[in-house]
């Protein structure tokens, strides 16, 4: 068992023992290699199931919306930013939460990892920043940093931005030369090529809505895609409808998205839906100097007005 897992179990069982919270939300080991499952521990016994490794890429802030109980939550950098967003958007109040912060060195892109093997991965373990992966045919020792999820590679907030206690020491933040290289690549395309790029991106979308449902921002009781009276968008596989869904979902995340990558991790078809939200993150940052979820005293970007705001687009 790694040190982090041990600390998380200890801290959570203390919280429950001292009746500080009604439940602690964290991850338990999955039934297949490299899978984990969000779980709530209601008693000390259950905290023994908690684990932490580099497969915990799903965002746990998604599991606290509108909860009435007092909650302990394990939060890596991006989870903590979404907790901040939840607090500023009144989805949960700060005093209902006890945050166990986990400084993070990035999560694994398991599709990329699997592509290294001809047969299925049967075992995965970690030793510090090294990962040991076995398949039926071969065992490989790999560097975790070579297999990070793409959002983790450009992450500027590995440390939790808000917490009550920490499960490990803070880590060094990354120095990134060009944070938006991926966005710039699309920006440099001609208008037709951009359109085709997104057409191609969404070709395999099956509209299972895993992206929006894994997203902590998508907490509307009824999403516009599910509305039937009035119906805003067709429900089938028409490519205009599919693009409309992704475009509008992304736009609803403007100034709120923390680039946690849960959408991409959840997608069964391996679609990089971050290509939409990344543009909004870049614009929020470059035009308004805004990064989502850093400060619970600040109102969300699109909910504030300042005379200094750029208004060159209004005629």
């Amino acid at each position: 068992m790694n040190k982090l897992t041990q600390n998380i179990r200890e801290l959570s069982s203390n919280l429950l023992k001292n009746n500080k919270v009604d439940m602690v939300i964290g991850f338990k080991k999955g039934t297949i290699p490299m899978a984990v499952s969000p779980m709530a521990a209601h008693n000390i016994e259950q905290t023994k199931e908690f684990i932490w490794d580099s497969n915990c890429g799903i965002n746990l802030a998604n599991f606290i919306s509108d909860k009435k109980e007092k909650i302990g939550i394990i939060a890596k950098g991006c989870d903590s930013r979404n907790i901040v967003t939840h607090i500023t958007e009144n989805k949960i109040s700060r005093d209902k939460l006890h945050i166990i912060g986990v400084p993070c060195t990035g999560m694994i892109d398991k599709i990329k990892l699997q592509s290294n093997f001809n047969d299925d991965i049967t075992d995965y373990s970690e030793n510090g920043e090294d990962i040991i992966v076995k398949s039926g045919l071969i065992e490989k020792n790999l560097k975790k940093s070579d297999y990070l999820k793409s959002n983790c590679k450009t992450c500027m907030h590995r440390n939790p931005v808000i917490y009550d206690e920490l499960a490990a020491e803070l880590v060094q933040e990354q120095k990134i030369e060009d944070q938006f290289a991926d966005v710039k690549k699309i920006e440099s395309l001609s208008i037709e090529d951009k359109w085709n790029y997104f057409d191609n991106l969404l070709k395999d979308c099956i509209r299972c809505y895993a992206c929006k449902n894994a997203c902590p921002l998508c907490y509307c009781p009824s999403c516009f895609v599910n509305e039937s009276n009035p119906q805003w968008v067709g429900k089938g596989q028409d490519k205009t409808d599919i693009k409309t869904f992704h475009f509008l979902r992304a736009y609803h995340c403007a100034g709120r998205c923390t680039d946690c990558g849960a959408c991409v991790q959840a997608c069964p078809m391996n679609i990089n839906v971050r290509d939409f939200t990344r543009k909004l993150i870049k614009d929020s940052y470059e035009i308004y100097g805004w990064e989502a979820g850093l400060d619970i005293t600040k109102r969300p970007l699109l909910d504030t007005f300042s005379l200094k705001d750029d208004d060159s687009f209004i005629k």
Binding site: M39, I206, C208, A210, N213, G234, P268
Partner: peptide, 24 residues
């Protein structure tokens, strides 16, 4: 508890047969 209510399981399933009718 962990379910996010996406349709991945049903849509990748070879035996799920439910459908919805829409007029366009």
């Amino acid at each position: 508890f962990s379910c996010i209510n996406c349709g991945t399981c049903s849509f990748v399933c070879p035996t799920c047969w439910c459908f919805d009718i829409q007029d366009e």
